[in-house]
Write a protein that binds this DNA or RNA. Sequence first.
DNA 1: ATAATATTAGAGATCCCTCTCTATATTGTT
DNA 2: AACAATATAGAGAGGGATCTCTAATATTAT
Lengths: 193, 193
Amino acid sequence: MARPPRFDLDQLLDAAVRLAAASGPAGVTMSAVAKEVGAPSGSVYHRFAGRTVLLAEVWLRTVEHFQEGWFAALEGEGDPRRAGRAAARHVVAWSRAHPEEAALLLYGAQDFGRAEWPDEQAGRADRGRRRVRDAVARLAAALGAADPAARERVSVAVIDLPLSLVRRHLRAGEALPGHAEGLAEECTAALLA
Amino acid sequence: MARPPRFDLDQLLDAAVRLAAASGPAGVTMSAVAKEVGAPSGSVYHRFAGRTVLLAEVWLRTVEHFQEGWFAALEGEGDPRRAGRAAARHVVAWSRAHPEEAALLLYGAQDFGRAEWPDEQAGRADRGRRRVRDAVARLAAALGAADPAARERVSVAVIDLPLSLVRRHLRAGEALPGHAEGLAEECTAALLA
DNA sequence: ATAATATTAGAGATCCCTCTCTATATTGTT
DNA sequence: AACAATATAGAGAGGGATCTCTAATATTAT
C-alpha cells in the first residue's frame, strides 16, 4: 500500500548521533544529517517536523537507551550499596560500548534546544527525569540518607561521578582506560560508605 | 593621540560570557555580542580577528580566571589531604561567585572551536592544561598514589567531582544550594582517604 | 490494471551570520 | 590648524542553513 522507506528514523538519528559526537549539538543540522546518510533534505523533513524536533529526538533516544540499562543495574541488586556500585559501573561500561552516544550524554537537554521542544518531547524528558529522581530517592532512603546534602551525595555517587569519569576521557579525545569501570565502582563505594 | 575606545576587550568578553551562559557556545555570535553591548559589528571585528578568536578568548579568560584561585587553594596548604579539600571547595565557591563563567566551564575547549584556534590561543590552553596536570601529579605523589588509576582518582577528587556537583545545579537552572561547598569537601575527602 | 498512499527528490525563498570595506569621529602632537 | 593614530559606524556581499512546495516514484490492495 505504500512505497518502502529508504531512510528510516533510526538511520537518521544514528547519523545525528555521529555528527553530535564529532561536532557537538551545533553540528547537527538538517543538511548535515541529509548529507551524512546521502539523502536529500526533503527526506529528513519528511521524518522530522524541523530541527527542533530532530534535536529533541536524538537526545531523548540516547538518554532512554542509557537509562534502560541503568535502571536494570540499580534495581537488579538487593543490597543498596551493591546496587549503587552496579549503577556506577554501568555508566562507564555503557559509555565504553557506545562512545558516540556517550558523547551526547555529556551535554544537557538545554544544549539540544530543550526550551523550544514541543510538549510531547518535553513530557518524555520530564518523565525520564522524574524516574531517575525517584530511583535515587529510594536508594538514598535505603541507605539512611536523610538530609538534602546526604541525598545529593548519593545522586552524585551513582550518576554524576561516573559520568565525570567518562567526560574526562571523551573530552580529551581518548578512549576509556581499562581501569575505568573498577575506578568508578571504587569511587562510588567510597562515597556511599 | 587616539580616540578613546567605547567598547573594550573585557566589556565584549563579558557580553560573550552572558550569551554563552544563556545559550551555550552556539549563542556566541559576532552579531549577538555586538547587539548585547550596543555596538555595530565592525567594532567587534576591530577587537577580534573573527569568531574563532572571540570564542578562544572568552574560553581562555574564563579558565584562567578560574585556575588562578584554584592553584592558590591547592598550593596554600601543606598537608596534601587538606590541599585537595581546599581545591574542591574552591571549585564550588568560585562557581557560586561567578555563575555565568561557571556555566562556561561546564563545556570543553572543543565546544569553543578549539580545533580552529590560532597557535597563540592553542598554546595558552596547552600551558594551562599542563600546569593543572603537573599540580595534580604532585598532589598524587604526596598522597602516595602510584598507579594510573590511583592518580586518576586524585584528579577526579579535586576537579571533576566538584565540577559535576556544580553541573547538576547549573544544568537544571538552579542556584547552588548552601551545602554545596561542604558537600564537595566531604566527597573529596572520602575519595582521598 | 488501477487507485491509493508513503516516500523520495530537489529547487528555491528567506533568514541569519561572517566578514570586508569605506567613511567618519575623537584625541594628542606639532 | 593640520595631522597622525585609533576607534566607531554601518552598509553590503557572500555563504550556509532552515523550511516550503511541487513533482516524480515505488509499492500494495483491490
